[in-house]
Simulated scan of single mutants.
Amino acid sequence: MPHTDAETRDLFDREMREHARPDGPGVRVERAGPVVRQVGGPDDWNGVVWSDPGLDAAGADAAIAAQIEHCTALGLPDFEWKLYAHDSPADLGERLRAAGFVAEEPETLLVAHAEPLAGPVELPEGVSLRPVTDAAGAELMARAHERAFSTDGRRLLHQVVKRLEEAPEDFVAVMAVDGDGEPVCSGRMELYPGTGFAGLWGGGTVAAWRGKGIYRALVAYRARIAAERGYRYLQVDATDMSAPILRRLGFLELGTTTPYVYRPAR
């Protein structure tokens, strides 16, 4: 890893944000003036992933207005500006809120070397890991996500099925199932060719199974694959629930990121 946290963050900003890759089939990443955004269909993730560090107040307001116009013109149900705490100007979050974006819960940006995390991890008796490779597995994965996070898993299901069918080569999905085959935890990994980073997403464990090492096992499973494919770093946007576990595993905190979501009036 680079010598300082600031150097690691700069590497992340450059490779994963300014030069972002599409996170699935049917979407594209484009530079639009001072921002980089991902654009896809209504069930894809659409939003800004990077903004120019030199952005000033007037430039920020103009960029925000342009993204609202873009989102509205495409008829998207929502559009996210992924704001990092070190982005400029310092009051960019306030400007997004003033324009109608709604801030969701902030997450912690964590990064770690993949190889040291790739060792074996014991699972509770009766629990096993199962790769997700088809639509049936994706449905179970979405069910685990719904049970862990109490959210609707339909968009996740759509994205995972589409990815497995059209572009599975840089995508890993895995779940933990109990002795009855019921999913109790799931997680995904995006591999970003041309970078040193692999992103861990969606890790969540059903409440009754937390504290038993299952989440840690899913991290190790994905870390092993990342290391085998030559990726040096794992990156996570962690919730308050998963961040303490990841810190104990050796992840370093590089800052926070907050999703600002705009939903056009219907």
Rank of each mutant, 00 (worst) to 15 (best):
E80I: 05
E165M: 04
G93E: 05
Y262E: 05
L92N: 07
V172L: 14
A167Y: 08
A65R: 10
A65Y: 04
A176R: 14
T195C: 14
G179Y: 14
A98K: 11
S150K: 13
P168E: 08
V261K: 03
V132H: 00
I245L: 15
D237R: 10
A176Y: 12
E15N: 06
R247A: 13
P116C: 13
M175H: 10
R229V: 14
P259Y: 08
W50P: 00
S150P: 01
D10N: 09
A227S: 14
A118R: 08
P120D: 07
A227T: 09
G153D: 05
G255K: 11
L249T: 07
A226W: 09
A20Y: 04
G153H: 04
A136E: 08
Y192F: 15
G211A: 13
L157Q: 02
L249G: 08
E169V: 08
A217L: 08
V39T: 02
T258E: 10
R210I: 11
E139C: 03
R216A: 09
V160H: 02
Q67A: 05
E30A: 07
R31F: 01
E190M: 15
E7Y: 12
E7K: 12
E253D: 15
H113Q: 15
A265S: 14
T4R: 13
V49K: 00
Y231S: 06
E69H: 07
A112K: 10
V161R: 06
S150W: 11
T239G: 09
A85Y: 09
R224L: 13
E7G: 13
A142K: 02
W201H: 15
V184N: 12
G75F: 05
P2L: 15
A136R: 12
L123Y: 03
V206I: 11
P124K: 00
A243P: 01
A90P: 04
L110F: 10
L252E: 15
V29Y: 03
E166D: 08
H3N: 15
V172E: 10
V27Y: 01
L117H: 06
V174F: 09
E182P: 12
A243L: 08
Y84E: 12
G119Q: 06
G24I: 11
T133H: 01
R163A: 06
G126D: 05
I68Q: 06
E115W: 15
V102K: 12
L252P: 03
R216F: 07
V127T: 02
T151G: 04
G24N: 06
R248L: 13
L83V: 03
G230Q: 12
G126E: 05
G213P: 09
A198G: 13
T151N: 07
L200K: 13
R247W: 11
